[in-house]
């Protein structure tokens, strides 16, 4: 081998290593910077706007599916023997016309009110190689505790539009991961690249006024101050529908909604 060529080969290898290190370091710095920004945001967050508990109202209702409900898609979990969960997808869950996993939240009407971030963490569990719950609501800055109850490794990979993306693996019996999302974002997809059927959605909102419909399609939002609001109903496949509602002090309003099958 002539000297010139070997010198060039060494230069190329060195350059490659340098580039790699730069990328790795930048990523770490970005992560640290993002975490610092989140801490600063929490520290400088304005005090919550007081709400008179004697006047608060409740909005509840049922979300229906209009039309022939699609059959739940079967999931083939055979590629990992440790996955023994129910083999059905949860993207459209309908029971007797009631639609589950619809995220319901106050989209508009709260004005410039601010709210305390709950100190309790929200739990996202991985069990039977599925996410529990499939649809999750959380306030911006609130801690999400991610647990792995399976005897296999998962990787948790949120793919947000407005928040920081990350991807971490979690072996069996490892400590829960604690994460938070700084910015409001509806239908933030989370997936596991090791088990491609594992998908769920996190909804990050600024107020505590949100709910997810249960198997009976029911939801309830409590503690709402009197006012005019826009309530949004969001489904991962069927899209979003909004309704206007006015609540008086101590009111309990029923706001039902129905979704038609996607064409």
């Amino acid at each position: 081998m002539n000297k010139k060529t070997s010198r060039r080969m060494i230069s190329v290898s060195t350059l490659a290593c340098a580039l790699l290190l730069t990328v790795a370091c930048n990523k770490k710095e970005n992560t640290e910077q993002s975490n610092n920004n989140m801490s600063q945001t929490a520290a400088t967050a304005p005090a919550a706007t007081p709400i008179d508990p004697a006047t608060v109202a409740t909005v509840n209702g049922t979300v229906k599916f209009d039309g022939m409900a699609p059959k739940p898609a079967k999931i083939d979990m055979s590629q990992d023997p440790a996955c023994k969960g129910m083999n059905e997808a949860e993207n459209v869950v309908v029971d007797n016309g009631d639609l589950a996993n619809v995220f319901v939240y106050v989209k508009d009407g709260l004005g410039s009110r601010t709210f305390d971030v709950p100190k309790d963490e929200v739990v996202l569990d991985q069990s039977g190689c599925k996410y529990h719950p499939h649809m999750l609501g959380v306030m911006a800055g609130q801690t999400v505790q991610i647990k792995n109850d399976d005897q296999t490794t998962h990787n948790i990979h949120p793919t947000p539009k407005d928040n920081r993306e990350w991807n971490e693996s979690q072996p069996p019996a490892s400590a829960p991961l604690e994460k938070s999302f700084a910015r409001e974002e509806i239908m933030l997809p989370v997936k596991c690249n090791q088990h491609p059927w594992m998908k769920m959605y996190i909804n990050v909102v600024k107020s505590p006024f949100y709910a997810v419909t249960d198997k009976a399609g029911k939801y309830e939002i409590k503690g709402l101050p009197p006012g005019d609001y826009t309530i949004a109903f969001v489904h991962e496949k069927l899209g979003e529908q909004d309704q206007k509602v006015t609540v008086a002090p101590k009111d309990t309003k029923t706001v039902d909604q129905s979704f038609k099958a996607a064409e």
Binding site: T152, T153, N193, Q194
Partner: peptide
Amino acid sequence: VPHFVGGIR
């Protein structure tokens, strides 16, 4: 060699 399952394979 990791646990050889799912996408890891």
